[in-house]
Design a protein around this nucleic acid. Structure first.
Lengths: 147, 147
DNA sequence: ATAGTCAGTCCATAAACTAAACGCACTTAA
DNA sequence: TTAAGTGCGTTTAGTTTATGGACTGACTAT
Protein backbone atom coordinates (compact mmCIF):
# COMPACT_ATOMS: atom_id res chain seq x y z
CA UNK A 1 0.00 0.00 0.00
CA UNK A 2 1.14 3.50 -0.74
CA UNK A 3 1.39 5.66 2.33
CA UNK A 4 -0.53 8.48 0.63
CA UNK A 5 -3.65 6.32 0.39
CA UNK A 6 -4.09 6.58 4.14
CA UNK A 7 -5.31 10.15 4.14
CA UNK A 8 -8.71 9.09 2.93
CA UNK A 9 -9.11 6.23 5.44
CA UNK A 10 -12.11 6.38 7.72
CA UNK A 11 -9.93 5.80 10.75
CA UNK A 12 -8.91 9.10 12.28
CA UNK A 13 -5.65 7.65 13.57
CA UNK A 14 -4.72 6.63 10.04
CA UNK A 15 -5.54 10.13 8.81
CA UNK A 16 -3.45 11.70 11.52
CA UNK A 17 -0.55 9.41 10.72
CA UNK A 18 -0.78 10.14 7.02
CA UNK A 19 0.46 13.61 7.98
CA UNK A 20 2.53 12.95 11.10
CA UNK A 21 3.74 9.41 10.62
CA UNK A 22 7.28 9.73 9.39
CA UNK A 23 10.65 9.91 11.01
CA UNK A 24 10.95 13.70 11.31
CA UNK A 25 7.60 15.46 11.24
CA UNK A 26 6.76 14.97 14.90
CA UNK A 27 10.29 15.93 15.92
CA UNK A 28 9.94 19.19 14.01
CA UNK A 29 6.61 19.83 15.70
CA UNK A 30 8.09 19.06 19.10
CA UNK A 31 10.64 21.79 18.42
CA UNK A 32 7.83 24.14 17.48
CA UNK A 33 6.18 23.52 20.84
CA UNK A 34 9.51 24.32 22.46
CA UNK A 35 9.62 27.64 20.66
CA UNK A 36 11.85 26.88 17.70
CA UNK A 37 10.70 28.75 14.59
CA UNK A 38 13.51 28.97 12.07
CA UNK A 39 15.01 26.80 9.41
CA UNK A 40 18.56 27.00 10.72
CA UNK A 41 17.43 26.32 14.26
CA UNK A 42 15.48 23.21 13.29
CA UNK A 43 18.42 22.00 11.26
CA UNK A 44 20.98 22.58 14.00
CA UNK A 45 18.72 21.14 16.70
CA UNK A 46 17.67 17.99 14.90
CA UNK A 47 20.69 17.34 12.68
CA UNK A 48 18.18 16.60 9.93
CA UNK A 49 19.30 16.96 6.33
CA UNK A 50 18.29 20.29 4.81
CA UNK A 51 16.52 18.63 1.90
CA UNK A 52 14.19 16.71 4.17
CA UNK A 53 13.63 19.69 6.43
CA UNK A 54 12.54 21.79 3.47
CA UNK A 55 10.21 19.04 2.37
CA UNK A 56 8.65 18.46 5.79
CA UNK A 57 8.15 22.14 6.51
CA UNK A 58 6.46 22.58 3.16
CA UNK A 59 4.12 19.68 3.94
CA UNK A 60 3.28 21.05 7.35
CA UNK A 61 2.53 24.45 5.88
CA UNK A 62 0.42 22.85 3.18
CA UNK A 63 -1.48 20.83 5.76
CA UNK A 64 -2.21 24.02 7.70
CA UNK A 65 -0.32 22.88 10.78
CA UNK A 66 2.40 25.50 10.52
CA UNK A 67 2.07 28.97 9.10
CA UNK A 68 4.86 31.08 7.65
CA UNK A 69 5.21 34.51 9.18
CA UNK A 70 7.75 36.91 7.61
CA UNK A 71 10.15 38.31 10.18
CA UNK A 72 12.30 40.40 7.81
CA UNK A 73 12.39 41.77 4.26
CA UNK A 74 15.43 41.89 1.99
CA UNK A 75 15.58 38.95 1.77
CA UNK A 76 12.19 37.78 2.97
CA UNK A 77 12.63 35.27 5.75
CA UNK A 78 9.92 33.30 7.47
CA UNK A 79 9.28 31.95 10.92
CA UNK A 80 7.35 28.71 11.02
CA UNK A 81 4.78 28.92 13.77
CA UNK A 82 2.01 26.60 14.94
CA UNK A 83 -1.48 27.33 13.68
CA UNK A 84 -4.55 26.48 15.76
CA UNK A 85 -4.52 23.07 14.09
CA UNK A 86 -0.89 22.69 15.10
CA UNK A 87 -1.54 23.77 18.67
CA UNK A 88 -4.29 21.18 18.82
CA UNK A 89 -1.51 18.60 18.76
CA UNK A 90 -0.54 19.62 22.27
CA UNK A 91 -2.37 16.70 23.83
CA UNK A 92 -0.67 14.23 21.51
CA UNK A 93 2.72 15.68 22.40
CA UNK A 94 2.08 15.57 26.12
CA UNK A 95 0.93 11.97 26.04
CA UNK A 96 3.78 10.96 23.79
CA UNK A 97 6.23 12.58 26.19
CA UNK A 98 4.63 10.96 29.19
CA UNK A 99 4.89 7.57 27.55
CA UNK A 100 8.49 8.19 26.56
CA UNK A 101 9.34 9.26 30.08
CA UNK A 102 7.70 6.39 31.93
CA UNK A 103 7.81 3.51 29.46
CA UNK A 104 11.08 3.87 27.55
CA UNK A 105 14.13 2.65 29.39
CA UNK A 106 16.29 5.36 30.85
CA UNK A 107 16.40 7.74 33.74
CA UNK A 108 12.99 9.40 33.96
CA UNK A 109 14.23 11.87 36.53
CA UNK A 110 16.78 13.53 34.26
CA UNK A 111 14.32 14.24 31.52
CA UNK A 112 12.61 17.38 30.46
CA UNK A 113 9.08 17.80 31.80
CA UNK A 114 6.42 20.48 31.84
CA UNK A 115 4.98 22.70 34.52
CA UNK A 116 1.25 23.31 34.59
CA UNK A 117 1.16 27.09 35.01
CA UNK A 118 -2.41 27.26 36.26
CA UNK A 119 -1.80 25.02 39.28
CA UNK A 120 1.97 25.27 39.61
CA UNK A 121 2.71 21.56 39.66
CA UNK A 122 5.01 19.54 37.45
CA UNK A 123 2.65 18.06 34.92
CA UNK A 124 1.64 14.42 34.88
CA UNK A 125 -0.88 14.31 32.05
CA UNK A 126 -3.62 11.74 31.63
CA UNK A 127 -6.51 11.33 29.22
CA UNK A 128 -9.99 12.04 30.52
CA UNK A 129 -13.50 11.67 29.09
CA UNK A 130 -15.28 14.92 28.31
CA UNK A 131 -18.63 13.39 29.28
CA UNK A 132 -17.80 12.08 32.75
CA UNK A 133 -14.42 13.62 33.55
CA UNK A 134 -12.92 10.29 34.61
CA UNK A 135 -9.56 8.96 33.47
CA UNK A 136 -9.87 6.79 30.38
CA UNK A 137 -8.03 3.48 30.41
CA UNK A 138 -7.64 1.03 27.54
CA UNK A 139 -10.04 -1.59 28.85
CA UNK A 140 -12.91 0.89 29.13
CA UNK A 141 -13.03 1.92 25.48
CA UNK A 142 -14.63 0.12 22.55
CA UNK A 143 -14.49 1.20 18.93
CA UNK A 144 -17.82 2.26 17.45
CA UNK A 145 -18.87 3.74 14.16
CA UNK A 146 -20.27 7.15 14.99
CA UNK A 147 -23.98 7.61 14.31
CA UNK B 1 21.90 12.76 12.65
CA UNK B 2 21.40 9.05 12.98
CA UNK B 3 17.90 8.19 14.01
CA UNK B 4 19.21 5.65 16.53
CA UNK B 5 20.94 8.40 18.51
CA UNK B 6 17.55 9.68 19.59
CA UNK B 7 16.88 6.90 22.04
CA UNK B 8 19.39 8.36 24.48
CA UNK B 9 18.10 11.93 24.18
CA UNK B 10 16.94 13.59 27.38
CA UNK B 11 13.70 14.61 25.72
CA UNK B 12 11.04 11.99 26.36
CA UNK B 13 9.27 12.81 23.11
CA UNK B 14 12.46 12.09 21.20
CA UNK B 15 12.82 8.79 23.03
CA UNK B 16 9.25 7.84 22.28
CA UNK B 17 9.72 8.70 18.62
CA UNK B 18 12.92 6.70 18.40
CA UNK B 19 10.66 3.68 18.80
CA UNK B 20 7.37 4.85 17.30
CA UNK B 21 8.48 7.39 14.75
CA UNK B 22 8.31 5.65 11.45
CA UNK B 23 5.69 5.18 8.81
CA UNK B 24 4.19 1.92 10.03
CA UNK B 25 4.84 1.26 13.71
CA UNK B 26 1.96 3.34 15.02
CA UNK B 27 -0.38 1.89 12.42
CA UNK B 28 0.51 -1.62 13.59
CA UNK B 29 -0.13 -0.59 17.18
CA UNK B 30 -3.44 0.96 16.22
CA UNK B 31 -4.44 -2.41 14.84
CA UNK B 32 -3.36 -4.05 18.09
CA UNK B 33 -5.68 -1.75 20.01
CA UNK B 34 -8.45 -2.77 17.61
CA UNK B 35 -7.81 -6.42 18.44
CA UNK B 36 -5.65 -7.52 15.54
CA UNK B 37 -2.99 -10.01 16.66
CA UNK B 38 -1.67 -11.99 13.73
CA UNK B 39 0.83 -11.51 10.98
CA UNK B 40 -1.55 -12.21 8.15
CA UNK B 41 -4.19 -9.94 9.62
CA UNK B 42 -1.79 -7.01 9.98
CA UNK B 43 -0.57 -7.57 6.47
CA UNK B 44 -4.01 -7.78 4.94
CA UNK B 45 -5.33 -4.83 6.96
CA UNK B 46 -2.47 -2.44 6.36
CA UNK B 47 -1.21 -3.54 2.97
CA UNK B 48 2.28 -3.24 4.39
CA UNK B 49 5.02 -5.28 2.76
CA UNK B 50 5.79 -8.50 4.62
CA UNK B 51 9.46 -7.69 5.01
CA UNK B 52 8.74 -4.46 6.83
CA UNK B 53 6.01 -6.02 8.91
CA UNK B 54 8.40 -8.71 10.11
CA UNK B 55 10.95 -6.04 10.96
CA UNK B 56 8.53 -3.79 12.82
CA UNK B 57 6.98 -6.61 14.82
CA UNK B 58 10.45 -7.77 15.85
CA UNK B 59 11.32 -4.26 16.99
CA UNK B 60 8.12 -3.91 18.96
CA UNK B 61 8.71 -7.24 20.66
CA UNK B 62 12.29 -6.27 21.40
CA UNK B 63 11.17 -2.96 22.85
CA UNK B 64 8.74 -4.80 25.12
CA UNK B 65 5.67 -3.16 23.59
CA UNK B 66 4.27 -6.35 22.09
CA UNK B 67 4.68 -9.85 23.45
CA UNK B 68 4.47 -13.05 21.45
CA UNK B 69 1.98 -15.58 22.76
CA UNK B 70 1.91 -19.00 21.11
CA UNK B 71 -1.57 -20.00 20.00
CA UNK B 72 -0.68 -23.36 18.40
CA UNK B 73 2.15 -25.89 18.17
CA UNK B 74 3.28 -27.76 15.05
CA UNK B 75 4.20 -25.33 13.72
CA UNK B 76 4.47 -22.82 16.55
CA UNK B 77 2.53 -19.70 15.73
CA UNK B 78 2.37 -16.53 17.75
CA UNK B 79 -0.16 -13.86 18.48
CA UNK B 80 1.30 -10.41 18.96
CA UNK B 81 -0.41 -8.79 21.92
CA UNK B 82 0.09 -5.51 23.74
CA UNK B 83 2.16 -5.64 26.93
CA UNK B 84 1.52 -3.20 29.78
CA UNK B 85 4.00 -0.87 28.11
CA UNK B 86 2.03 -1.19 24.90
CA UNK B 87 -1.30 -0.58 26.60
CA UNK B 88 0.21 2.55 28.12
CA UNK B 89 0.09 3.99 24.61
CA UNK B 90 -3.68 4.14 24.83
CA UNK B 91 -3.64 7.84 25.69
CA UNK B 92 -1.40 8.64 22.74
CA UNK B 93 -3.71 6.71 20.42
CA UNK B 94 -6.84 8.41 21.72
CA UNK B 95 -5.37 11.89 21.35
CA UNK B 96 -3.97 11.09 17.93
CA UNK B 97 -7.40 9.88 16.85
CA UNK B 98 -9.11 12.92 18.27
CA UNK B 99 -6.73 15.20 16.41
CA UNK B 100 -7.18 13.23 13.20
CA UNK B 101 -10.95 13.39 13.55
CA UNK B 102 -11.25 17.10 14.29
CA UNK B 103 -8.23 18.65 12.60
CA UNK B 104 -7.68 16.67 9.42
CA UNK B 105 -9.98 17.54 6.55
CA UNK B 106 -12.75 15.08 5.93
CA UNK B 107 -16.11 14.08 7.31
CA UNK B 108 -15.68 13.68 11.07
CA UNK B 109 -19.11 12.12 11.39
CA UNK B 110 -18.34 9.07 9.26
CA UNK B 111 -15.28 8.11 11.21
CA UNK B 112 -14.66 5.44 13.77
CA UNK B 113 -14.87 6.60 17.38
CA UNK B 114 -14.82 5.03 20.81
CA UNK B 115 -17.40 4.51 23.50
CA UNK B 116 -16.43 5.07 27.11
CA UNK B 117 -17.87 1.94 28.73
CA UNK B 118 -17.90 3.30 32.27
CA UNK B 119 -20.19 6.23 31.46
CA UNK B 120 -21.74 5.03 28.21
CA UNK B 121 -20.99 8.13 26.15
CA UNK B 122 -19.14 8.40 22.86
CA UNK B 123 -15.67 9.40 23.92
CA UNK B 124 -14.28 12.87 23.41
CA UNK B 125 -10.88 12.62 25.06
CA UNK B 126 -8.89 15.51 26.47
CA UNK B 127 -5.65 15.79 28.44
CA UNK B 128 -5.91 16.65 32.12
CA UNK B 129 -3.39 17.44 34.86
CA UNK B 130 -3.04 14.78 37.55
CA UNK B 131 -2.39 17.45 40.18
CA UNK B 132 -5.41 19.70 39.62
CA UNK B 133 -7.67 17.66 37.32
CA UNK B 134 -8.15 20.57 34.91
CA UNK B 135 -7.82 20.34 31.15
CA UNK B 136 -4.30 21.17 29.98
CA UNK B 137 -3.98 23.57 27.07
CA UNK B 138 -0.80 24.52 25.18
CA UNK B 139 -0.47 28.02 26.63
CA UNK B 140 -0.51 26.75 30.22
CA UNK B 141 2.52 24.50 30.00
CA UNK B 142 6.20 25.40 30.16
CA UNK B 143 9.11 23.02 29.73
CA UNK B 144 11.21 22.48 32.84
CA UNK B 145 14.10 20.23 33.66
CA UNK B 146 12.83 17.92 36.39
CA UNK B 147 14.53 18.32 39.79
C1' DA C 1 36.42 44.12 0.28
C1' DT C 2 35.77 40.27 3.38
C1' DA C 3 33.35 37.59 6.23
C1' DG C 4 29.13 36.07 8.13
C1' DT C 5 24.03 34.78 8.24
C1' DC C 6 20.00 32.55 6.68
C1' DA C 7 17.24 29.74 3.75
C1' DG C 8 17.32 27.17 0.72
C1' DT C 9 18.96 23.90 -3.86
C1' DC C 10 21.72 20.28 -6.17
C1' DC C 11 23.82 16.00 -6.49
C1' DA C 12 25.82 11.47 -5.79
C1' DT C 13 25.57 7.84 -2.66
C1' DA C 14 23.30 5.01 0.78
C1' DA C 15 19.44 3.12 2.98
C1' DA C 16 14.69 1.86 3.15
C1' DC C 17 10.64 0.17 1.05
C1' DT C 18 7.85 -2.50 -2.28
C1' DA C 19 5.65 -6.38 -4.78
C1' DA C 20 5.71 -10.77 -6.05
C1' DA C 21 7.45 -15.26 -5.87
C1' DC C 22 9.12 -18.94 -3.10
C1' DG C 23 9.89 -22.16 1.21
C1' DC C 24 8.51 -24.66 5.11
C1' DA C 25 5.74 -26.98 8.43
C1' DC C 26 2.04 -28.32 9.07
C1' DT C 27 -3.72 -29.39 8.46
C1' DT C 28 -7.86 -30.54 6.02
C1' DA C 29 -10.55 -32.37 2.04
C1' DA C 30 -10.84 -35.53 -1.93
C1' DT D 1 -2.07 -40.52 -0.72
C1' DT D 2 -1.84 -36.89 -3.32
C1' DA D 3 -3.75 -31.94 -3.60
C1' DA D 4 -4.91 -27.83 -1.84
C1' DG D 5 -4.90 -24.57 1.91
C1' DT D 6 -3.03 -21.84 5.94
C1' DG D 7 0.22 -19.05 8.40
C1' DC D 8 4.60 -16.94 8.75
C1' DG D 9 8.01 -15.90 7.10
C1' DT D 10 12.56 -15.21 3.40
C1' DT D 11 14.53 -13.91 -1.07
C1' DT D 12 15.13 -11.13 -4.92
C1' DA D 13 15.07 -7.30 -7.80
C1' DG D 14 13.53 -2.91 -8.72
C1' DT D 15 11.87 1.66 -6.97
C1' DT D 16 11.62 5.31 -3.80
C1' DT D 17 13.34 8.08 -0.23
C1' DA D 18 16.94 9.83 2.79
C1' DT D 19 21.49 11.52 3.57
C1' DG D 20 25.51 14.67 3.88
C1' DG D 21 28.07 18.01 1.85
C1' DA D 22 28.93 21.54 -1.37
C1' DC D 23 26.93 25.36 -3.47
C1' DT D 24 23.84 29.68 -4.48
C1' DG D 25 21.73 34.04 -3.59
C1' DA D 26 20.40 37.92 -1.08
C1' DC D 27 21.49 40.32 1.97
C1' DT D 28 24.18 42.65 6.78
C1' DA D 29 28.11 43.91 9.65
C1' DT D 30 33.06 45.19 10.01
Amino acid sequence: MRWSELESADCPIARALSILGDRWTLMILRDCFFGVHRFEAFQANLGISRTILRDRLAHLVQAGILVQRPYQDRPVRYDYVLSAKGKALNGVMLMLGEWGRTAVDGQPETQIRHRHQTCGHVLTPYVACAACGEEVVAKDVRAVRAA
